[in-house]
Design a protein around this nucleic acid. Structure first.
Lengths: 262, 262
DNA sequence: TGGAACGGTTCCAAATTATGGAACGTGGTC
DNA sequence: GACCACGTTCCATAATTTGGAACCGTTCCA
């Protein structure tokens, strides 16, 4: 295990749930020896990847991560293009839009487009959640090979909220339905009372995969409104697939556009 | 030189000017042996600190930097408080506001508050510039000890635009004027045609230091308007210093508030 | 006041890891 | 077909990391 690997393991202890950690926290989380952790934390601080509060002595991500984070895919056309389209849909429907990428069996929110409807934003950019319990997460997974999916999901299936798949078999059923219908939906899963619909978009050039979703309050939304969202998403998916050269846009596999689905 | 040091040196090659780099670029910039660079780039990619475009094979900051960057000072009260005040001033004056921190002799933009006046935003968050040529950069430096400043400025004084200090002596003159008057101003320095006024704010608890500036077009602004900005900044500085326990707010060193300065 | 637990750092020999020059692909291009 | 730019792999040497144990300073509690 290289020094870099250890450093990364340490950096990965930080999350939105725990944006700052003490030395003891890190030792407890990683289980590494105190001496190694002490040295490594200092190195990371000295090089700018971490900062240390001079008063509490707690560590947090440093200036360098901020700078680099601002650079991340700043130039990326796929995400920018998708975001523009998503903004229009969100403006029309009033709902909240998300763009995320896959990382293993999890996803990370890249962009959020707040809707005009009052729905508390609980997933700011940078938020990491299970991709198994979201509409756009599953939409992304549905575009991978079964063996790739198998490799991404941990041996012991993660514990997920009630309406989400509870085991690998249920997951695969949801994914094959997405593959069949082109529609991915989640309701009352990752977040209580929130539903969403999403799809995955792949760049024809780079193969890069992103997930786009529109989310809304389940109880404040009628079936007709949800059907409207489905139409909006189908139109957006079609347009974006043409624009980005998504292979799925060319193999003639359309999103179901009628209101008949359910 | 530790493995981590090398990794950081490599990460620091990326900037807003060069958000993605090829293997050869990195070798050219760092001057390191090809073999070491090749291995290190792959390690950084494998651990998520870098991404590699599958088509062009160029490297760019990875998902992990994005996640960590979102965490950076997410909880920070000093910056949040300052930003709220700055928003009000920018709303009143129509000018563009900046919050930055010092890193060596450079500064990094943390927040930007776009004004209503049309002035192209050239310094997005994450932008790194010389702190010697900006109003808030010099305001921060002015609060450090002379020996600390000496240690931060490189041996060979950096080449700066015409109106900026051209050598260490000129810099110290500008800084002592800031210390004396409490006013920091820049005009036609880092950016052609742009002027700014700024001040530094230190947290009484943590000692953390940030620089706050308001910038405007030099030719589109009258002397009266600039005097108004000075008043606004003085009021904001006073209020923030009281709120954050800035030592400078207690030692009775006020910002000049009258319109008489110049 | 003693002392035990907590939080964190330093030390040092052993072992793993990085290093970089050279050789080796792999396309493109003249 | 030779040449060049770009990039990777190899391998003995050199350097760094590693982690148990000792250590230092606070805090908490009896």
């Amino acid at each position: 295990m290289s020094a870099l690997t250890n450093a990364i393991e340490l950096l990965r202890c930080f999350s939105t749930a725990r944006p700052d950690l003490s030395f003891a926290d890190v030792v407890a989380i990683t289980g590494k020896p105190k001496s190694s952790t002490s040295r490594l934390l200092r190195s990371l601080r000295d090089c700018g990847l971490l900062e240390q509060d001079p008063h509490t002595r707690r560590y947090r991500p440093g200036l360098l991560t901020f700078e680099l984070g601002r650079l991340h895919r700043a130039h990326d056309d796929l995400i920018g293009t998708a975001e523009r389209e998503l903004r229009e849909v969100c403006a029309r429907t009033g709902h909240t839009g998300y763009i995320a990428v896959l990382d293993g069996h999890e996803q990370v929110v890249l962009r959020i487009v707040p809707g005009s409807n009052p729905l508390r934003v609980v997933n700011p950019p940078g938020q990491r959640t299970s991709a198994l319990a979201t509409s756009n997460g599953r939409a992304m997974l549905a575009r991978l090979s079964d063996q790739d999916i198998r490799a991404r999901v941990p041996g012991t299936f993660p514990r997920l909220p009630r309406n989400a798949p509870q085991n690998f078999k249920q997951l695969m059923e949801r994914l094959s339905e997405i593959r069949r219908t082109g529609v991915s939906e989640a309701s009352d899963e990752a977040i209580e009372g929130v539903g969403s619909q999403g799809f995955a978009l792949a760049s024809g050039e780079t193969g890069e995969l992103i997930g786009i979703a529109v989310s809304y309050s389940v109880q404040a939304t009628t079936a007709a409104e949800r059907a409207n969202v489905r139409r909006e998403l189908a139109a957006m998916a079609g347009k974006l697939r043409r624009m980005t050269g998504d292979p799925l846009g060319q193999t003639g596999m359309p999103l179901r556009t009628g209101a008949g689905a359910r």
